[in-house]
Design a protein around this nucleic acid. Structure first.
Length: 282
DNA sequence: GACCAGGAAGAGT
DNA sequence: ACTCTTCATGGT
């Protein structure tokens, strides 16, 4: 099996990276082996100390997906601005943000609104099973995440079995928009953060929170700082104590939080967000 | 800006 | 069995 030997200066934890909640389609066996579908391949990967042993993709793909080219030690130095984030970082040593396929990431975060993680995973698996291509791997069937055109071709009713609730028309309409806009991915990638955010929010079902997740996880816009209920709570308790949580999260509160984060944690505040989220209690 | 719809499963009592 | 919570968004 192919292997990547991580030199001692490359900080990486497969378990932290795939278990922190940024991805929805990876599963870990009790033995610590991870299986996931990325693009049109099934990947099997495990970490044994400084060795990454994998099947299903080329070395260059694995390096890129797990962003092993980035200097994580340097990034951590930049965001490590106070005792609270310091503790979070030390609890999640080796966590890296992966480079997710943009459309899958977008559809996933449209499905994620106001839901818990097991429910989100079930919805995404259901969309893949309904519209994706089957791949056999070790006598199990996996499904690719479908292109937007595969979803839009099925019509609105094609999604009914996926039990998305009120998110069903959001996924459908967004799949139509992305199908029509041929240069969608490149357009977003080329734009600076704030403009890319506005562009993403034109999609039905993508608000500020989902847009920030997509920009962080699929487009490597590390200055984005997604604010969900957990992050809001953490920021209120530890950083911005004047925030009133009872009043709900207004767009103004959201902007207050992300601007604070951008100034406090710096250009890699998205990484800080993921450490705060992954190290949360509850 | 305040309110509400729409919706399912997990976690806790 | 019942309540509370959940990686929010869009429309009125």
């Amino acid at each position: 099996m192919p292997k990547i030997s991580l030199s001692s200066d490359i900080l990486f934890s497969l378990d932290q990276t795939l278990g922190c909640g940024q991805v929805f389609r990876w599963e870990r066996t009790e033995e610590g082996v991870w299986y996931g579908v990325v693009g049109d391949r099934v990947i099997k990967i495990q970490q044994d100390g400084s060795n990454l042993v994998f099947e299903g993709a080329k070395t260059a793909f694995i390096r890129n997906y797990f962003s092993l080219d980035l200097d994580l030690v340097q990034i951590i130095k930049k965001i490590d601005q106070d005792p609270f984030i310091h503790t979070a970082i030390s609890r999640c040593t080796g966590l890296r943000l992966v480079r997710q396929p943009p459309w899958e990431c977008t559809a996933s975060y449209i499905c994620s609104t106001n839901s818990n993680i097991p429910t989100i995973r079930r919805r995404i698996a259901s969309i893949a099973e309904q519209f994706g291509k089957a791949i056999e791997f070790e006598e199990k069937t996996y499904y690719t995440f479908p292109d937007p055109s595969a979803i839009s071709c099925g019509g609105l009713d094609g999604l009914t079995e996926c039990r998305l609730g009120y998110r069903q028309p959001y996924v459908f309409r967004s799949s139509c928009s992305v199908t029509e806009e041929k240069q969608w991915e490149e357009t977003i990638r080329r734009l600076p953060y704030e403009d890319a955010r506005k562009e993403l929010m034109k999609l039905h079902g993508v608000g500020p929170k989902a847009a920030d997740c997509i920009l962080l996880f699929a487009f490597q816009k590390y200055e984005s700082f997604p604010v969900d209920v957990w992050i809001r709570r953490i920021m209120q308790q530890n950083y911005i104590k004047t925030l009133d949580l009872e009043a709900g999260l207004t767009n103004r509160d959201y902007n207050t939080i992300r601007q604070f984060a951008r100034e406090h944690f710096g250009e890699y505040c998205g990484y800080a967000q993921e450490y705060l989220y992954a190290a949360r209690e509850g």
